[in-house]
Design a protein around this nucleic acid. Sequence first.
DNA 1: GAGATTTTGTAGAACGATATACGTAGAACA
DNA 2: TGTTCTACGTATATCGTTCTACAAAATCTC
Lengths: 350, 350
Amino acid sequence: MSEKEPTAPRSGERITIREVAQDAGVSVAAVSKVLRDAYGVSDALRAKVRASMEKLSYRPRASARGMRGRTYTIGLIFPDLRNPFFADIYSGVNAALERTQYQAMQGINTTSGALNMTSSALIEAMIDRQMDGLVIIGPNMETQVLTDLGARLPLVVIGQHDRGGDAFDTVNNDDQLGARLVVRYLMGNGYRKIAMLSLSPSNSSIIQQREIGYRLEMMELGAGDAINIVRASQVVRDVQVTVRRLLSGPDRPDAIFCWTDLMAFEAISVATEMGLSIPEDVAIVGYDNTMFCDLAQNSLASVDQSGELLGLQAARMLVERIDGRVTAEHFMVPPRIVARASAGPRQPQD
Amino acid sequence: MSEKEPTAPRSGERITIREVAQDAGVSVAAVSKVLRDAYGVSDALRAKVRASMEKLSYRPRASARGMRGRTYTIGLIFPDLRNPFFADIYSGVNAALERTQYQAMQGINTTSGALNMTSSALIEAMIDRQMDGLVIIGPNMETQVLTDLGARLPLVVIGQHDRGGDAFDTVNNDDQLGARLVVRYLMGNGYRKIAMLSLSPSNSSIIQQREIGYRLEMMELGAGDAINIVRASQVVRDVQVTVRRLLSGPDRPDAIFCWTDLMAFEAISVATEMGLSIPEDVAIVGYDNTMFCDLAQNSLASVDQSGELLGLQAARMLVERIDGRVTAEHFMVPPRIVARASAGPRQPQD
DNA sequence: GAGATTTTGTAGAACGATATACGTAGAACA
DNA sequence: TGTTCTACGTATATCGTTCTACAAAATCTC
């Protein structure tokens, strides 16, 4: 109870490590060791310190920790917030972090266009805030930028097949296989003139992979002549115009393989407005198998890429990197087609 | 160029304020003042320092700033990520923060159930990370908890009508009016047996407000006998069961006013599966006017509560609070009904 | 039982900003 | 010419942790 410190701890202020140390009758360094699970702490001391921390309901401050060590915070960077698929990834990340000291903070990378930028404002902001590592989802930046970034801090990328040496890890579903499954599924149900509604600009490797998968499977199944790739940006208006043009052309496809469920919903909408029936006049398949696929008004066949698993794995790998791994690892989950009415078996033409 | 410092700055390390000061030939304190736009800096000095910061591409570290001052980071807490309405709020917040030094970091408050908790793990994590302030969206916690929280740091709450003295600001749409508009709109289109699909548990004030608005308008328009409120949680399965029960009862409503668009989409799905036509057999109205309402397969009439404006305003108010305002302010935007086919004019019964 | 090794704990200097308190140069005023 | 302001800059303590270096105690080794 003796107050010999020059600065008496003001009441009402937040508890610090110093007060915990004093309460437990040990040094500040000892408390810090317990906090970090560092080497050289006896069970007795650990218990004593833990008890004091509990009693005073002490919580370490990330800023102070960040000055010398880790902040125990990782950054999650999403390309947008409207696609519910990202919610799956998010919940996977959180599940992986549950029992660790780490906490995820998210941001949306709204930079469109400037692909060759050194980095993005959000990423710089995350670095300023001393994130221990980053998970970037569906990056629209060049591999070189990611490689440079990976040299600066632990990095895991979801949705990017190109590798950057040992600079970063990747977590993906097998996009090429996913596209193949879609073509196979549609062909099996009697569709042959399968168009692909892809994404523009197509700088990303997952786009390339899916397009390759589509092309190869079309050729292997003898429909090479029907290959037709059109591209639209994620902007609603753009998707609508593109789909409308595709469906009103002279050689209307009898199925469309869409980049995402979101685009597929737009496609269903446009087709419906044009008076076309799904799947009688045109079958639609999406990608991501988001929760909206199940709704009766959509009944959208889609490719499940287990977002939760992707997130889980990415978070695990990032923590490993933070803990010192310096060689790259790459994780790939198999996609799975989920059949639904939007691409059901084709009725014999009358 | 003289190196008389005891610690020579290691190359490859991040630029610090000290190096900027040295480069500009001024004191560290002067640089700090420029950074904070603090009083007592001449234009000449400011220019000199700015030039050096630019030249060295200096960026202040949030952790270090957080030790004594602000982190220039605010926390955004969402109740979930699946509702695209939150994306609108997010973009409003970002628009408001665009020209400031502040950066938003988000998190999802996944705590379900424990309403009377002192706080939530995410909120504590945000406090640990020295957020300068918090915007909480659609909190499922008691007002007292928010009041306590507001005493700890600047706080703005979106989607909560109950006030907490001067402890926090609120930003809302007029939920009571929104509900009234829906009833008025449906009545105007010939529907009378309007049921309300509300949210459970109904501890939140926005739920109460909407239910009050619904009840009052029903009574005022002479349909008090048709008042029927059913409740479901956000869980998909729960919504389905509730809607199915509602629609298969002996006294089927001819319209359902749903808590959110998401619930409305579920309702459309269930109704469709039951072989009911929309709006002939049952009209559906949602809330939030999310992007999916426009799709032909939904064509969902909804209430627009300008999420972007809500976010914009919340961020502005939060920054004001951080800058010292201590009295509460409350902002309310008027809701607006958006008519669509899901609740179009009723055809005369045959 | 002496030296070597390992385990356990401590002291105190960082980390990179902010903010207080103070010094100094001009300007304004008498 | 001195005095009093005001505007501008600076020196330096401080924030709450981590982490290096080291001391003391316990254990091992032969």
